[in-house]
Amino acid sequence: MNEKSKFIAEKNSERLDKLLTELFKDNFDFSRSMIQKLIEQNLVTVNGEIAASQKMAIIVGDIIEVTIPEAKKTEITAEKIEFEIIYEDADILVINKPNDLVVHPGAGNRSGTLVNGLLDAIEDLSSIGGVERPGIVHRLDKQTTGLLIVAKNDKSHRVMSEMIANHEVYKEYIALVWGNIEPSKGIIDAPIGRHPNDRKKMVVTSKHSKSAKTNFEVIENFEYSNTALIKCNIETGRTHQIRVHFNFIKHPIVGDPTYGRINDKDTKFGQFLHASKLIFNHPITKERMEFEAPIPDEFNDKIKELRGK
């Protein structure tokens, strides 16, 4: 059932959306963009008339009524899915995602995802991500293992999303790449966009792209197999960013079925890429949070193989 909220303006305001954002921040914590969507959907009236624009001026005494639509219920089925919860409180979860697990349902893929497992294990998840992505603040690829933040309510989700957008969440990865890398430190600063001929792939391009920056450091070069163990952190969060960037500099991720070498296409484990560390301030308490997840056993075994020991 839709919920209605009624306000009488106690001060003048140059913009309706700005005033409503202030009025709603305590009870609903709606972002300005969410308020703007309600106005666009004709769910806001001023003095009994549908609000003409999010930019309309408000004067003292104006009566504003907002209809808040009922949140859509997910049609995704809860399932028992194996994953490790590293941390949990009333606002967030930190998950250690296993290999070969898709984060959320998509076209033709309605089950067997992390979201299916979250719906079974967690009572409350944020709704900002929509009915198919409850709680999902950011993603990892299917065959990327490691740390993932999940929001349990809309306020924590909104704040975490803003923190990620403002580069306030430190995300560090461990990866195996083809080829020895010299020098031992570097920055890959190259824009990423959709591949012009394959919409499932991303590519470094100047056309219809977004800036992307990856910092990396070589942990060890393996001369035996002409590979390297690296750690990197991303200043931006573009789709497939690390995989695309290292392919761009001719050091693709070992085992990458999409951007790797031809003989990597059929490997069972997939790319050897692990989200190993997260550092951020808690979205509600502002406490500094730091988490680390060890690389999977298969990853360790592959390091020994490539090291030649």
Rank of each mutant, 00 (worst) to 15 (best):
K171R: 15
N180D: 13
V150K: 12
D154C: 12
I164C: 11
K171D: 02
E172P: 01
I149G: 11
A165Y: 11
K152G: 01
N153W: 14
A151L: 12
A175W: 01
E182K: 12
A165W: 10
V169S: 04
E172W: 01
Y173N: 08
H138A: 02
M163V: 07
H167N: 15
V137R: 00
R139V: 03
E162Y: 08
L176V: 07
E182A: 09
S156Y: 01
T145E: 14
Y173M: 13
Y170K: 11
S161A: 10
N153P: 08
E182C: 04
H167L: 04
L147M: 03
V159R: 10
I174Q: 08
N153V: 13
Y173G: 05
G179A: 14
L147Q: 01
A175T: 08
V159F: 03
E162R: 15
M160Y: 06
E182W: 04
Y170I: 10
T145N: 15
N166F: 02
N153C: 11
M160I: 07
K152Y: 03
I181H: 07
M160S: 02
L147S: 03
R139N: 06
A175Y: 02
E168R: 14
Y173H: 09
V169P: 00
R158N: 14
A175S: 13
L176F: 02
V137S: 09
K152M: 08
R139F: 11
D154V: 11
T144Y: 06
V150S: 10
H157P: 06
V169W: 04
L140N: 07
L176E: 03
R139D: 03
D141C: 11
K171I: 04
E168Y: 05
L176I: 05
I149Q: 11
L176N: 05
A175P: 00
V137Y: 02
S156K: 01
H138F: 04
R139L: 11
Q143I: 02
V177G: 00
T144L: 09
Q143P: 00
I164S: 07
E172G: 06
M160N: 06
V150T: 09
V159M: 05
L140W: 14
D154I: 08
H138C: 08
L148C: 07
V159L: 08
I136K: 00
K142G: 02
H157W: 04
M163K: 15
D141S: 07
K155E: 14
H167E: 10
H138V: 05
L176R: 07
L176M: 09
L176K: 03
A165Q: 15
R139A: 06
E172D: 05
V159A: 02
E182S: 14
I149M: 14
D141W: 06
K171F: 13
T144S: 07
I174P: 00
R158T: 14
H157A: 13
G146D: 10
N180M: 15
A175L: 05
I174Y: 03
H157R: 08
H138K: 03
T144V: 14
W178Q: 01
K171Y: 09
I174A: 01
V169H: 00
L140S: 07
S156L: 04
Y173D: 04
L140D: 09
K152T: 09
E172M: 10
E182F: 12
W178T: 00
S161M: 06
K142C: 04
M160V: 04
Y173A: 07
E182Y: 13
H138Q: 01
G146T: 11
